[in-house]
Amino acid sequence: MIPFSAQLVNLFAALLLLIAFAMLSQRRILSLINLFAMQGLVLSVSTLIVGLTTQQHHLYYSAALTLVLKVIFLPWLLHRLIRKLNVKWDVETMFNIPSTMLIGIVLVVFAFNLALPISQLSGTIIRSTLGIAMASVLLSFLMMITRRKAVPQVIGFLAMENGLFFAATSATYGMPMVVELGIALDVLVGAFIFGIFFFHIRETFDSLDIKHMERLKED
């Protein structure tokens, strides 16, 4: 019988995966940002539960950090950005959404298959969620590939970090605090740099469609 807290974490893990799929299929940027905030919230709560169950105090800080950074600050930043850039319209994808979802399912199978031996080695109570974590990393990556506009690509990048964070929590109760802080800082700085780039891309090409960047290629 799996303990109650572990069942709770499994539930949140399932939610994480579900949100990842939702992001993959979401056409509107605004909803995409909201989904990203939700994913952050799920992550934060599940980290908190793991921390409470296992008495790993540094996980509290991780959870708080996630909450502040990924649920409040980054979504607020992104909202502000798209207001300024005025890009609330629909997102065009490269492939149609159903086939992207099919590829996503294949990736999930691959990720579970991959995580199986690792989670047998791991001694944590939530080791079975490692496959979900890896699947959400791969799904976020897939989202980056299939989107044509710059903002969803950045959201994909941030979501990928969510998946990584979850993987670390589920396999080893989180990375050392220093590493976690470092990654958080990276994400923050990355988001700022992307924000600056958005403005520059738009100034140069009058659009945030990255297909214009093909012109930068050297012949």
Binding site: N113, F141, I145, Q153, I210, M213, E214, R215, K217
Partner: peptide, 25 residues
């Protein structure tokens, strides 16, 4: 290999990642 399309570049690293993961396994 240089296409100038970010999606293709991302695809390169994605495929590399999948290949490496499959190989490690």
């Amino acid at each position: 290999l240089q296409h100038g399309r970010i999606s293709i570049y991302l695809l390169y690293s994605f495929i590399t990642l999948l290949a490496l993961l499959a190989f490690v396994r």
